[in-house]
């Protein structure tokens, strides 16, 4: 399993630190998206692991674990699509 991930990023200090173009390493993340979120999805025990929330999340932040599913809250925007798609009402949105 692989995906783009957060890297340390140093703002350019002097002119020569600036790149000559915008071509760069793929999957190189330097900021999180969690600050956009008003509500946080919580996966509850009613989950039957049908994976619909994993599939339909526009941000791909729900991931499989050995015991079920987990959410990467660094990048979840709190849209609530996972809550709506869940056939078991096993996701609840909690105000941040």
């Amino acid at each position: 399993m692989s995906k783009p991930y957060l890297r340390p990023y140093q703002k350019p200090q002097k002119l020569s630190d600036y790149p000559l173009g915008t071509a760069s390493e793929a999957g190189y993340l330097v900021t999180k998206n969690c600050g956009w979120r008003n509500e946080r999805p919580i996966i509850m025990d009613e989950c039957i692991n049908c994976l619909q929330c994993y599939l339909y999340c526009p941000d791909g932040v729900i991931f499989k674990t050995k015991s079920g599913l987990d959410i990467d809250y660094d990048f979840c925007k709190g849209c609530g699509i996972c809550e709506k798609i869940c056939p078991k009402q096993a996701i609840k949105m909690e105000v941040e």
Binding site: M1, S2, K3, P4, L6, G27, L29, T31, K32, N33, W36, R37, C50, L51, Q52, Y54, L55, Y56, C57, P58, D59, G60, V61, F63, K64, F75, K77, G78, C79, G80, I81
Partner: peptide, 24 residues
């Protein structure tokens, strides 16, 4: 299916609005 598709993500951390269909 959701079961057989790769766990890897190739479009991640993007700045699309919450709930954006295009990004899905």
């Amino acid at each position: 299916t959701a079961k057989t598709i790769t766990d890897s993500e190739f479009f991640y951390g993007h700045k699309a609005c919450a709930g954006c269909g295009g990004s899905l």
